[in-house]
Design a protein around this nucleic acid. Structure first.
Lengths: 220, 220
DNA sequence: GCATGTTAAGTGACAATGTCACTGAAGCAG
DNA sequence: CTGCTTCAGTGACATTGTCACTTAACATGC
């Protein structure tokens, strides 16, 4: 059923069949329900994660109760932050939450070391994963340090809506995406509503004018 | 003269002698004067950098003219951002500036690949470098998203002063460290001055009361 | 139905930070 | 000494963050 899982790992660098076969021999899979903490400051895994199915939200929390989403790990991607923390042995306060039910491949550290040593394709995959996250974080820094909240919110609304017009999210959840306070989101959404770009009801937002939102988001 | 350069690369994972010897065979060194751009959006190197001597400041710029320092590369460290960008082929707008005259080891990509494949110690070194930068960036995100400017400034003043009491820096330079505007720095420094924690003159700041600054910085 | 509790959202006041358009001050070069 | 140039100070205002609330929407049990 999961015999072809490595075929999913092609996002940044595809893994050829022989490498996949080797992976299958040493890996085992785990499943976690939606909402579960995959890793966190008090829950540092000693193995490496490769996400087969589902999505993980990686976020950072402040001690004043605010959150910010750093990036999301999608099916076919690796979660290098755990790797990083294993290696660096430094404190960090990011956590990964299963945003859906997830299935992950767990690779013990020793097996990981061997694969990295012996399989060029695997090595490339891992380096690409690291690189991608570094660049994701650069983007977050840029947004937080220099971006305007209305623009960032418009971007996020569009991203969350996908091809649909409706989003099921509370103001608090949106605030936690962007690392700001609920009141700030409320204010901006009211402004969007006044300008007839969205409609709101409890826990739900309808994007009435995506082009206008896109124009706003483009003025980053 | 530089035959022992690899001995410097021990910050996160030491390189044993045989690995160092191999490195020396394939690497060449370059020097750059203080102020030079080591890499940037329009200046993506096709080799890997290991800093032998000096210091590089890696910062990100906004299109509105503000800057923020992401981290510094010290002697003995690798600059993985260039690696990341080579691999990810994504746009980014970070740049590295030589903060002092620098001497760097340049490793062609092919030689890098071979070393990573064949030398476990080198691999560990590279992974540790990646991990360290990821964690550095987590810290930056945390600071920018949740930190207070007076606390961040106090931290930076202490870090920049080292064991001395004097700092040679303009308000603009400090603003560019922290990703804020000069006026904000001026305001906060005036406050510090009023509280007799510092004294100021054109382009120079004297830390009069380091304990008080440390206490402020600790309330992060 | 209705009462009640819980969570989501709105509000106003204020503090902190960012932006703008300036003014004044310090050092430098002639 | 006289102008440049860079650095720092200032006040007004916009945006964002924080606090202490109020009001509204839904859920549950009766």
């Amino acid at each position: 059923m999961i015999a072809d899982w490595t075929e999913r790992f092609q996002g940044t660098a595809a893994l050829p069949r022989p490498v996949r076969d080797r992976l299958l021999k040493v890996a085992r899979t785990i499943e976690m329900p939606k909402g579960e903490q995959v890793f966190g400051p008090t829950n540092i895994p000693d193995s490496l994660f490769f996400l087969y199915d589902g999505r993980i939200r990686v976020s950072q929390s402040s001690d004043t109760g605010r959150d910010i989403v750093l990036y999301r790990v999608d099916a076919g991607e690796s979660c290098v932050l755990t790797t990083a923390c294993m290696l660096a042995e430094e404190a960090y306060n990011a956590e990964g939450i299963a945003e859906t039910d997830i299935t992950a491949i767990v690779l013990p550290k020793l097996a990981f070391d061997r694969l990295v040593a012996e399989e060029e394709a695997f090595r490339k995959f891992v380096f690409a994963a690291y690189s991608r996250r570094l660049i994701d974080l650069l983007r977050v820094v840029d947004d937080v340090a220099f971006g305007h909240m209305d623009v960032r919110l418009a971007e996020r609304l569009l991203a969350l809506s996908g091809d649909f017009k409706e989003i099921a999210a509370t103001h608090q959840q949106l605030a936690s995406e962007l690392g700001t306070a609920r009141e700030v989101i409320s204010r901006i959404l009211q402004d969007f509503q006044k300008r007839e770009m969205i409609a709101q009801s409890r826990g739900r937002i309808t994007l009435l004018d995506k082009p206008a939102l896109k124009e706003l988001a483009a003025s980053a």
